[in-house]
Design a binder for these strands. Structure first.
Lengths: 229, 229
DNA sequence: TGAGCTTGGATAGTCATGGTATCCAATATT
DNA sequence: AATATTGGATACCATGACTATCCAAGCTCA
C-alpha cells in the first residue's frame, strides 16, 4: 500500500507519519521506485504500537524509538533487554550504581528480592517511595505485606507466559511490561470506585454530577465476600 | 520563614516557587508587611506534594492544581471526590457518557463490577485495553482472571484503610490513589526482573553488566509470613 | 540615616516536545 | 500530456514548564 493508504488505515495524519519516519520510529516502506514506496501490514501494526506507547503508556517519541529498537534488534539476553526497556519507561530516573536507595533497599529486603542499585526500577521505586512519603502516605510494612505478594503473583503470571521463541519473548517482555501497566492502574482505580461506592452505601449518589443509579448492593459478585474492615 | 528559606528547605528554585504561586498550586504566605510574607511547614509539605505529583505521578501543573484544590476543599461525597481525582490523573482521556467502551465493559462484567461509562477510569481502561490489543498482547480471560483478583485485593486494602475523618479521607483517597501507582508499577517491574533472572537461571549473569548473585528463594523474610495468595 | 539586600509582583524569554505546513522535483496514472 | 501523489527537506507553530529580569517597596544593620 502507499503511504496515503497507511494514513487512512491508521488515522494518523500524513505529516505525523512523516515525522515518525524522520525520527526513526517507523521504517520506510520498500522503495518501488525513486519516489514511491510500498507499506505493509507490519507498518500498520507498527503505527498502532507507536500510538499505544506514546499516548497510553506516555512515552516520549525518543523513548518510544529506544523501546522499538530494542524489539527490532533482540539480543539473547532477555533479562538485559528487560532492564534496558525498564530504563526507557517513565518515570525517567537514571540509576546511579554508586547511589544508595535506602527506601527501595528496605522494601526489597522485606520482599526477599535482591537490591541491585544498577536496576533502573530500583531508582524508580526509591523515587516513588519518596513521593509517597512526601505526600504523607508512606508505604508501611502492613501495606507492603499486601501489595508485595499480590504484585508478585501478577508478575509470576507474566513471566510464566513468556513465549519460548527468543524474538517473541523480547517483544512480549518489553511491550508487556509497558502496556499492561495502564491496565493494572485502571483496574485498581475502578476497584476503588466500586468498593467505595458500595461501602459508602448505595442510596447515595455514586458520581459527582451525573445522577446515576448507584451500583447495586454488593450482593453476589462472583461469590466474593468483601468484609468491610 | 521567608521565601528564601523555603527555597533552601525544599531545594526548589525561587523562580519556580513563584511560578507555583502564580499558578495557584502554592498558597502565598501570610503577609507580615507589604513586601514580606511568612511561610510555614505546611508550605514545605505542600511543595513536596507538588513535586511528588508532577515528577513522580507525572501530572501537569494544571492537573496538579486541580487535585490539590480537591484536597483543599473536601466535599462530603468521597466517591465523587475520588471520581474527580481520577479524572485528573493520566492518561488524559475524557469520558463520554454516551460513548460505548466495549472492552472495558466486557472486563467489568467478568469482574462483576458495574459498568458506568461516566467514570473516567472506564474510558482509561478502554484506552489501555485497546493499546494492549494494538501491541499484540491483549488482556485475555486467563490474564484477567489473574490480574483482577489481585488488583481487587490491593484495592480492598486501600479502601479498608481510609481514615474516618472526612477531610483526611479525601486526602488519603485522592493522594493514595495517585501516589501508590508508581510504587505498584515499580514493584511489578522489579518482580519481573527478579523472576526473569531466576528463571533464566542462576549461572547466567542476571544483568547485562553487573554480576549479581541470584536472590535466594522467597523463603522467610523477617519472620513475617506473607502468604503468597 | 542610609547603603545594600531581600521581597513580591509583573513581564518577558527560553527550551524541549510533538507535531504541522509548505515547497519541490520526480514520478505514476489516466 | 495533464493531473495527482510521493518522498524528502525545511520551516513553522503551540504548549508546557520553567527561568530570568526589572522594579519599587520595604527591612536590617552598621
Amino acid at each position: 500500500m502507499r503511504i496515503s493508504e497507511l494514513v487512512e488505515r491508521t488515522g494518523v495524519p500524513l505529516a505525523t507519519l512523516k515525522y515518525y519516519l524522520r525520527e526513526g520510529l517507523l521504517p520506510s516502506g520498500e522503495a518501488t521506485s525513486a519516489t514511491r514506496a510500498a507499506y505493509g501490514e507490519t507498518h500498520v501494526r507498527r503505527v498502532a504500537v507507536i500510538r499505544a506507547l506514546t499516548e497510553t503508556v506516555g512515552l516520549s517519541v525518543q523513548k518510544t524509538r529506544d523501546v522499538l529498537q530494542l524489539i527490532d534488534h533482540p539480543e539473547e539476553d532477555l533479562v538485559g533487554m528487560l532492564g534496558k526497556a525498564i530504563e526507557a519507561l517513565p518515570p525517567n530516573v537514571t540509576p546511579d550504581a554508586r547511589a544508595d536507595y535506602p527506601r527501595a533497599r528496605a522494601v526489597l529486603e522485606k520482599l526477599g528480592q535482591v537490591y541491585e542499585p544498577r536496576f533502573a526500577a530500583v531508582a524508580q521505586l526509591e523515587h516513588a517511595l519518596a513521593a509517597a512519603e512526601a505526600a504523607g502516605i508512606p508505604l508501611d510494612d502492613e501495606r507492603l505485606a499486601v501489595y508485595g505478594p499480590h504484585i508478585r503473583a501478577i508478575a509470576e503470571f507474566d513471566v510464566r507466559n513468556v513465549p519460548r521463541e527468543p524474538a517473541a519473548a523480547v517483544e512480549y517482555a518489553v511491550l508487556g511490561t509497558a502496556v499492561h501497566e495502564p491496565v493494572l492502574v485502571a483496574l485498581r482505580r475502578l476497584a476503588h470506585q466500586d468498593l467505595a461506592s458500595r461501602r459508602l452505601g448505595p442510596g447515595r449518589d455514586a458520581t459527582k454530577s451525573p445522577r446515576g443509579k448507584p451500583p447495586k448492593a454488593p450482593s453476589a459478585t462472583k461469590g466474593r465476600s468483601w468484609k468491610k474492615d
